[in-house]
Computed example of a mutant assay.
Amino acid sequence: MVSQRLSFAVFVGVMALTSCAPLSIYYKEGAEVSRLQTDELQCEISALSDVPVNNQIRQEPPIFIPARRYCDGAGNCYIRHGRFERGDIYTVDVNASLRARAEQQCMLDKGYAPTTVPNCPNTVFRAAPKASTRVLPRLTPQSCAIKYQDGTWQIVNQPG
Rank of each mutant, 00 (worst) to 15 (best):
M1C: 07
V2F: 05
S3Q: 06
A9T: 10
M15G: 13
T18M: 06
S19H: 09
S19A: 13
L23G: 12
A31M: 08
V33T: 01
L36E: 03
T38W: 02
S49R: 14
D50R: 04
D50G: 15
V51Q: 01
V53G: 00
N54M: 12
N54E: 14
N55Q: 12
I57E: 06
R58D: 07
Q59D: 06
P62S: 14
F64M: 03
I65N: 14
A67N: 06
R68M: 14
D72F: 05
G73C: 09
G75A: 15
Y78E: 15
H81V: 14
G82F: 09
G82H: 10
R83H: 14
R86K: 11
I89F: 13
Y90K: 03
Y90V: 11
V94F: 01
V94P: 01
L98N: 00
R101L: 00
A102T: 02
M107R: 02
M107Q: 04
G111L: 15
P114W: 03
T116G: 07
V117P: 04
P118Y: 03
N119V: 11
N119S: 14
C120I: 05
N122K: 06
P129W: 00
P129Q: 10
K130S: 11
R134G: 12
L136I: 05
T140P: 01
Q142V: 04
S143T: 02
S143H: 08
I146D: 03
Y148K: 02
D150T: 05
T152N: 12
W153C: 04
V156T: 03
